[in-house]
Amino acid sequence: MGGAELGQIFVNAVLLSGILALVALGFSLVWGIMNIVNLAHGSFIVLGAYITFFLHELLGVDPFLSIPVAMVALFTLGWGIQRGLINQVIRAPLLATFLLTFGLEILIVNLINYFFKADVRSVTTAYSGTGFTLGSVRVPYIRLGALGISLVLVALLAWYLRATRVGRAIRATGMDIDAARLTGVKVATIYAATFAIGAGMAGAAGSLLSMIVPFDPTLGGGYTQRAFAICVLGGLGNVANVVIGAAIFAFVDVFVGARLPSLSRAVTFAILVLLLILRPQGVAGKRV
């Protein structure tokens, strides 16, 4: 493996880790605070991608400008799903929430499939495919932009959780639900906010992914699994853990992808399972 190739792998991994962090962020938040592994996370990502696609296709909106629209739409949807459905079974056995979110995933993905067909689509703009080179390493503009926006959103959420009244209540509820109630927190509302923020972040991730990879309604499932792997790698608990997990995942993924392209998913999952067994608290995090 030459130096140039290594350099490209390194840059690709860095570019990938930003968007992966965004993909995993909402998932990690919902899991960490509500103890729900949201298997419908991927369908939220897909919805974000379609919103960007259609705003660009029909109204000519620049894909980057459509991100806030996708976020607001998914935030609203997430709020409704949490209050209307998930909240009804949140204290039922684990399998119930697991299956419920999986049912939602099937439902949403197939509704998209029904309305928009299974065609593979991609968002193409004037600046798609352009980029610059550093020595022999190529850096596409869109991926760089996606990295930048991901980092901004990650930082924004970290700030929100740290510095605002609701953000603090979200963290407090995740740590001790009864103690949070004793300070006047209405848990159902905080859960709805948490789930909605998670969905909103997924929407943003979907918008960005639509510019980077061709997609169809089944794009999301793989990203739910990646999000899970990232949470396991980094551990739950805070935003920094997600970023660390995403970075590790991105490097493993890009490296394995370059060396063993056909087995990349098997290797990634083998690593994940091994890690689960050896270090269930994650590489970076404390035991959860």
Binding site: R168, A169, R171, M175, D176, L182, V185
Partner: peptide, 25 residues
């Protein structure tokens, strides 16, 4: 307002954040 047995502080929040959680409402 109830100060529960075992304190039940939010262990991962700072002291100031714990106090500020008291003003939630």
């Amino acid at each position: 307002v109830h100060v529960p047995q075992g304190r039940r502080l939010f262990a991962g929040l700072t002291v100031r954040e714990n106090l500020m959680q008291g003003v939630y409402l």
